[in-house]
């Protein structure tokens, strides 16, 4: 079989596991054969294979500047993710990819960047934040709006604080259920827009979260004057191959795996408003 078979995983070893929340873990992985890690861009995903269990598309949540490791943040919601989060240091997993269209970090140069994340949707956006903060002067204002179910479900809490202290950067978080000790904001992430003043003509937005959240965020951004073409969303569908063969991730005329997962809102707006596409 040809060595460039896109269906063959490459073995990576788990180097470090961080418990982010009760059900979400970050795995830092390194190639077993010591060859250079796969190159990736912010927003791309890998197909992660757990031997004898299965394979899933998982976005890369690590820094592109980390030339040794590929990092993934996984929420345990099913058979394969349960196994992924139970991997310990020294265990092996299979990696294919990376696949997909990345976030528009080059196009965003010189613009204000609004990053809107819901739940685990912050993971595929973290590489964007690393990228911008490393080149802070090349970008305009940075705003991160992040919604989680509860304070305990917030990812990357230490980093949220660090990011909020970067120059010209704001981080606003909200939760669905606060509990008695929460003094922050409660409500869906769209309600956070009232606290930020956008400069719509120079703003590009990158949005990742549940589909319904992305729909309402995109509408909100549009209401505030951001052009549809300047709103990017990251879509999710069932995926078996990542390379356009299995057909599962079709979304109208697009394959999420190769035409996405990051789409311009103007391309998919009508599909997002329809049911069961």
């Amino acid at each position: 079989m040809s060595p460039d078979d896109p269906m063959l995983p490459v073995a990576y070893r788990v180097e470090k596991v961080t418990k982010e929340t009760r059900d979400t873990f970050t795995l830092v992985t390194r190639r077993v054969d010591r060859a250079p890690r796969h190159a990736f861009e912010p927003g791309q995903f890998s197909m992660l294979y757990v031997c004898a269990v299965g394979e899933l598309p998982i976005s890369i949540s690590g820094d592109t500047a980390d030339k040794q490791n590929l990092t993934y943040t996984v929420r345990s919601v099913g058979q394969v993710t349960n196994q992924l989060v139970s991997l310990g240091v020294g265990d092996t997993l299979g990696v294919r990819g990376p696949f997909g269209v990345p976030w528009p970090v080059e196009e965003a140069r010189g613009k204000d960047v609004v990053v809107v994340a819901g739940g685990i949707g912050l993971a595929p956006l973290r590489p964007v934040l690393y990228h911008i903060l490393r080149r802070r002067e090349e970008y305009g204002r940075l705003v991160l709006l992040y919604g989680a179910r509860s304070p305990q479900d917030q990812l990357f809490r230490k980093e949220l604080t660090q990011w909020s202290q970067a120059p010209e950067s704001r981080v606003l978080t909200t939760v669905d259920y606060g509990g008695v000790n929460w003094h922050g904001h409660v409500g869906v992430v769209t309600t956070m827009f009232r606290y930020v003043r956008l400069r719509p003509e120079r703003t590009i937005a990158m949005v990742c979260g549940p589909e319904i959240m992305m729909r309402f965020v995109a509408r909100e951004l549009e209401t505030r004057g951001v052009e549809r073409s300047q709103i990017r969303v990251s879509m999710e569908r069932n995926m078996k191959c990542g390379c356009g063969f299995c057909g599962h991730c079709q979304y109208g005329p697009d394959f999420i795996c190769k035409d996405g997962p990051v789409f311009s809102y103007d391309r998919i707006q009508s599909r997002m408003e329809a049911y069961e596409i």
């Binding site: 079989m1 078979d5 269906m7 995983p9 031997c51 004898a52 265990d91």
Partner: peptide, 16 residues
Amino acid sequence: LFAAERENGAFRILPN
């Protein structure tokens, strides 16, 4: 697509 052999938490991919 392939076979895999597992040993001590690691595995090897065996292509067709």
